[in-house]
Amino acid sequence: MPAVTAPERAPRGASVMPDTPGWARWANDHRKWLFAAPAMAFVAVLIIFPLAWTVYLSLTDSAGSVRAESEFIGFRNYVDVLSDTDRFWPAVARTGAFTGVALFFEVVLGMAIALLLWRPFRGEKWVRVAILLPLVATPVAVGMMWRLIFDPNIGLANQALGWIGIGPQPWLAGQHTALPTTIFIDIWQWTPMVVLILLAGLTSLSDEPQEAAMIDGASAWQRFRHVTLPLLMPTVIVAILLRGIDALKTFDILYATKGRGGGSFHEVETLNVYAYGLSFDYNEYGLSSTVLILFFLIIIGSMWALTARRKGADR
């Protein structure tokens, strides 16, 4: 209603409006969609259309070249992929292990560091700078940096183990140690992200519940477990959600440390690395689209499970 009454209350507004050209008034009336439409169109053309195409490709035997003739084969790709215990299911397991272990350490360490930084202290500014550095560093470069540190022959890691009398480890070069080592790199780079989110949550909490618990004689651990943590839970879920989505999709550090196919034994081949290889190393577009659709469903499913828990926690 203010649009109707404004000219009466403000004569100046009434005198300006007739001067404005018709197109400007039209733009003004349709600003809601005029503002939103370009971005929405961009998203539609660059995201929704390719996504629909991916769904279509997953139902065909497209391979070799995307321009080559391909046949509609229904759900045969899905049967093939879901019964593939050689590459697909191990990749699912690696994706789950990578995300689960990395998230666990990132949240636990992130919480501990955020609690250390919660109350002001001298030199706070410098600690915060140090926390920001891994976060903004280029992931591919981070992968290369750790590749040197974990090099079995010349790396700092084995040198340091030597000082405390432990023999050299293969790290990224070992068939069973490669995945844990890449998880370590992910934890190094992304724990700071969790710290920043949790710290923002902690600073937005009010002091009163803490003080009340203190007067009641609660110990530091009791105050954390029964006062701070429940209040902070919504922020913890947001941190897990944001970090979890990115961890599931990790590509850069895996490609930088192990190259194509996640290494010669596919030891760090997660779903994202597998789908990339199917698309751009083997040109199996039908199969890779199927893997991607299943991967996408896994991501959506885990997000949904988390947000459902979040709503449950609110009640």
Partner: peptide
Amino acid sequence: MRKSALVVLMARVIPGVSLLVPWY
């Protein structure tokens, strides 16, 4: 416009590889 916003934010969730083949 929360639904429209959700569509744009979907882009944060989609694996980039699934867009690369059609784009290419």
